[in-house]
Every structure is written in C-alpha cells, then in structure tokens.
Design a protein around this nucleic acid. Structure first.
Lengths: 346, 346
DNA sequence: GTGAAAGCGCTAACAT
DNA sequence: ATGTTAGCGCTTTCAC
C-alpha cells in the first residue's frame, strides 16, 4: 500500500499467480478450450487429448479456478450457512451431515456463526455477495427486510429448525414440534406426573412457541391449568437460573419439559446437585432433539428426537431442487419419543 | 438440459441474473468504473458521485459480486477449514471464534468436515480450487504429498491443535501439550495417586504422543514405571471400551490421564456407572482442553486448558500476516491447569 | 475525479 | 473433436 512501484504486474501479492488453463494449453500444445473440456466431466473431447492435457496439468500442478467458473455460470455452488447457536451440539451434527451431503453434490459451504440471538444481517449480506446458491439459517435470525430482499433476488432462504418470525412463506425444515411436544405431555401424564412446568427459549422463537402451545394443548385437554413457565435464552447460564426459579416454586413442579436437550441437561444438573433431587423419581425432566448427550448415563434424558439425517435430506432437496422447487415448502420431519430414566418414577 | 431453445441468454437458469455494476452505472448516469469506486473504501471518487451511485444501487438491490473481484485480485478472501473431529466441542468453540475474527477481517470461511481420522485430501483439493488464502486443518489429516503441493503453490497450510505427521515445516498452532501434561503428572502425584494410566487417541496423532511423552517423562523422573496405556480413537465408544480395559486391570490404576476432555468424560461415566467408583476418591481422572463441559457439575473434571481465544489470535496472525509471515511458525499457546473434583482424594 | 479500455481465468456458443 | 471468439462482473491502469 505504501509503495506501488512494484515492477511486476501484481503489485500487492508476492505470491506467484497459480498456473492458468492457458499455461497448461501451451504446454500440452492444445487450445485453452481443450483444457477446459478436459476438466469438464461430460465434455466432448478425445481420450488422447484429455490425457495430454492431464499430464501437462499435473506437471504444472494446475487446478481449475472455481471462482472464474462460477462467474461465468452465474452459479457459485456455494451454500451459505449461518449458525445461531453454536453451543447446542445438535447443530454440529447437522453441519457435519450437511457438509458430507453437499460435498457429494459438488457444493460447498460458506459458514458464519452469529452470536446467540443476535441479528445475522451483516453476515448474510456478506454471503450474498458471493452469490450463494442458497442460504440456510440454523437457528439464526435475520431482519424481515433482508429476507424480503433475498426473496426479491430469488435467493432461496431456508430456515432450519426454526420458522421465520414473520408471516412470509419461506422454506423451512423443522422437527415435529407440535406432535413431539404433545407426545411428551402424554408421556408425562402417563408416568403420573401431575404438576408439569415448561422451561423454554426466547418468547419470539417460533420453535419455542410451537412446542409450548402443543404441550399446553394436551394439558388443557386433560382439564389441567396452564403450567408454570419460564422463558429466556437457549443458553446454559440463563437456563440454570430458570430451572432454579421453577424448582423454588411452591408447590414444586414434579416435571419439567425443557425446550431443548441442551436446556434439559442444565436443568438436570441444577435439580440433582443444587436441589438434591432424584431425577425421574422426584422430578421428571424431558428434552427435545435427542442429542447424543441425552443418552449418556449422566443424564439418561427422555427426549423427542429430531432426526438429523432426514432433516438434512430435506434441505438437500430444497437446495438442489432447482427452479421449480417449492421455495416456500414447510417441511416437518417426524421424530420419535425416546423414553429414558429421567421420566421414570419407579 | 433437455430443451436449450431458450430465447434468453441464460439457458440453464431461470433465475434472473442479479443487477451488475453496469446496470447501476446506467441508472446513475455514471461509468461502470465509478460504481466500482463507489464500493471501494479508499477509492478516489467525489462524494456526490458516490451518493448517486449508492441511490441507484439501492434501488436495484445491487451487491458487488465478490467472485468477480476475487478473480481480478487473485485473492479470494476465503479461508478454508477442515474439521476432523466434529464430536469434540472444542472445535466448535474454535470455529465460532474464528468466524467472528475472520469476518471482522473481511474474510470468509469455506468449511468442510471430514469423518474422524480419514484423510481429507479430497476436501482440500476442492478448497484449493477456490483459491483460498489459507487452509486451516483442525485435527484433520491430509497426505504428505498434498501438503507438499500446497507448499509449492504457496498456499499457507496451518495446523490447528495438531502438528503435521511428517517432518515438514508447516505452521501450527497448538496448546502447550508437553507443559500441560507435565503439570498434570505432577498434580496427580501431589494428590497421592500412585498408579496412573493413560488413555489416548490414535498412536499416529502427534498431539496424542506429545501429551503421552511429557506425562511419562515426569513419571520416569520420579522413578516410576511406564504407565498402562490404551490408545485408539478420539471418539466416544472406543474411549469407553478403552476405559473398561484400564479399569479391569489388576491392580487397577488409581488415576487416568485422558488425552482430551471428551475422552475423559466418557471415562468418568464408565468409572462411575459401570464400576461404581467414586470419581476423585477411588480414581482420579484428568482431561485436556478444558471444554465447557469439564466444569459441569456432573463431571467436575480437572483439565489443562487450551485457551481458544489466544489460539485463534495466533491463527489470525498467520492468516493475515501476509507474505513475510513465517509460514512455518510453531506456535504454542500456554493454558493452565484447572484443578477440580475429579482429582480430589479427600 | 472520471471514463474508456484491458483483462482476471474460465465456459459456451459457433465454426470447422 | 477441436480451435476461435465472445463475454461473465468486476478492478485497474491510463488518459483526460
């Protein structure tokens, strides 16, 4: 920046520019287009030519520049992902699956993480500049205005494990929040719990609200009152505080439905170590997601599963579905209730 | 693909092409170059012109195409990351930090996950095609050959939390494996444990071996024998099996140093729930990383911390250090021993 | 300060 | 099957 009197044409980089298709073409004695074809799977090129190209390419350590290809094709093969809650293991598993599936489809992931709850507009704007083929929001928020701009630009916006907060028809892939929560309510009642409480995430989280509403729906159907409820963040410290609040109630709830396993685990620890409660017998605790930790002996947590593989499969369909794909599909993937020790009274 | 008789110039995409700088220029009544300048921070452009451009850009919902910019500049502002072990929360914390720091530096993350232990060559090859500015391997392996090609292409390869398996001088950022493990050994001895064992990762993991060697070094210095040792994977199920093997030994070890917290937590559960041992009193257990879970009440695990923030800071220096940066720097970031209940005898 | 023009590395017509 | 040509959307000289 200070001295641009550099002699080379690359004033800012001392790094040598990598070999281009032209270099390979010259070395192989073919046209540059032939090099392009050699690297394009279905292209019409003679075996012998391709071979010569490949040898030359190998010698030069040539790799086609995907940036240039994307520029021409108008498609980047890049999928943008914004992860809102990196503390929840559920999202790692999802990211891993997605990475595997996308790379098989020749697509790549441009990832961002956004601090919990914060608006990810800035990150998303950045992503859009890369002309991503699709944008996946994992538990992250963007403004309604930006969402509308994506719609206007025809950039598929996919909500994962969360629906948009506004009433627009964007695609979403979620677990069976309503069904799962209803099953959980029934299970708690069957096990003889009579004073269930709810420990949830933010009140403006649609996922949270869907779970709560279905839960309450069942209780109401059984003639019960609305359960005590504490809402807050999807994070650990606030969750522990919320658990304390619930456990100090008089009469104390005899069961707590937590809106995610991550919250439920925090609740188990508070109940067990701070209140000396016997999990299952003294208090039933249920989570949602069925993350790996739920089945660990330390927690043995009853949970409604969100099957990552089918959920990712649904995402894949949306991403590579092409133009005639319904970009407003609301996909709900069923899970199943995993009954474990945390809701066993006997 | 079936019918290319499309009238438009875009035969494969029905998605309308986004507005280009040209479109904006026409609307604003300026040259296309002016548009470019309007979006380039330090460029020489009149305030009034920039404003007119911005208004037009806004109207069209224009965003500069970073792909095109990268093509010209020969630098993509993309950093490739391969995560080898997605089950270990340590890497997610690192990813989150990195994402935050990089996006402040105007760079973006192209991420891949590689199944544990597998060779990530394929993923890396892909990454290179995007002309990434640097490549970060988080606990992932690539072949020596590919590493050499990166060197040849002048693509900075950075090993995070692991050194290369071969004797080449690539940059690495690691925790204080030797120092930390030595501290752990001393701590165990101080606490009165006399028959420590080692539960480690793969034998070809340099990280694993550094930790083991330093651990044994201290024990030897105290005149003790080489401890019983089981090596395997950095995963849960094999770790549990390894823990069983160690705990069935006669005489049973009275302490186990696990090469990571993730392994240590699995070991705690086996010891507590399968062998009925009182953690701390009957058996001391130590981990490495000091992940968030280590301080959970359920585990209360003594661990040597790997401070993510300084480690990421070191990575940032390597990534944006530019050309005169030492691309073979071996950076070791000190942590500190967090003594907790899992090694408290009394 | 601004526009015209060249070209980054590649793909996709269009010829042959 | 292959080469030639024309750009993709932008940045960057180079004149003015």
């Amino acid at each position: 920046m200070k001295d641009i009197k550099d002699v080379t044409k690359l004033s800012r980089r001392t790094r040598p520019s990598p070999p281009s298709a032209h270099d390979v073409a010259r070395l192989a004695g073919v046209s540059q287009a032939a090099v392009s074809r050699a690297f394009t799977p279905g292209a019409s090129i003679a075996k012998a030519t391709r071979e010569r190209v490949m040898i030359a390419a190998d010698e030069l350590n040539y790799r086609p520049n995907l940036l240039a290809r994307s520029l021409i094709r108008g498609v980047s093969d890049l999928v943008g992902i914004v992860i809102g809650n990196t503390r929840n293991p559920f999202f790692f598993v999802a990211l891993e699956q997605l990475s595997a599936r996308l790379s098989r489809a020749g697509k790549h992931i441009l990832v961002f993480t956004a601090e919990g709850g914060e608006n990810a507009d800035v990150q998303v704007e950045d992503l859009l500049r890369y002309r991503v083929d699709a944008l996946l929001l994992m538990s992250a928020n963007i403004s309604e205005e930006l969402a509308k701009r994506c719609r206007r630009d025809d950039i598929p916006l996919i909500f994962f494990n969360r629906r948009p907060r506004w009433d627009l028809d964007f695609a979403s892939v979620t677990g069976a929040n309503a069904n799962g929560s209803a099953q959980i309510a029934h299970h708690l009642l069957e096990q003889g719990y009579r004073r269930p409480a709810y420990l949830g995430g933010p009140l403006d989280s649609p996922t949270n609200n869907e779970r709560y509403d279905a839960f309450v729906g069942v209780l109401r159907g059984e003639g019960m009152d609305e359960p005590p409820r504490v809402n807050g963040h999807f994070e650990r410290a606030p969750a522990m505080e919320a658990a304390r609040t619930l456990l100090r109630l008089d009469p104390r709830p005899d069961a707590i439905f937590c809106a995610s396993d991550f919250l439920a685990i925090a609740t188990i620890e508070v109940a067990r170590y701070e209140f000396g409660l016997d999990i299952g017998r003294d208090i039933g605790i249920v989570g949602f997601d069925d993350i790996a930790e739920a089945s660990w002996r330390s927690f043995d947590l009853t949970s409604y599963s969100q099957p990552v593989v089918p959920m990712i499969e649904a995402v894949m369909n949306l991403v590579s579905g092409g133009d005639d794909q319904d970009m407003a599909a609301q996909i709900i993937v069923d899970g199943s209730l995993q009954k474990r020790g945390s809701t066993r009274r006997g």
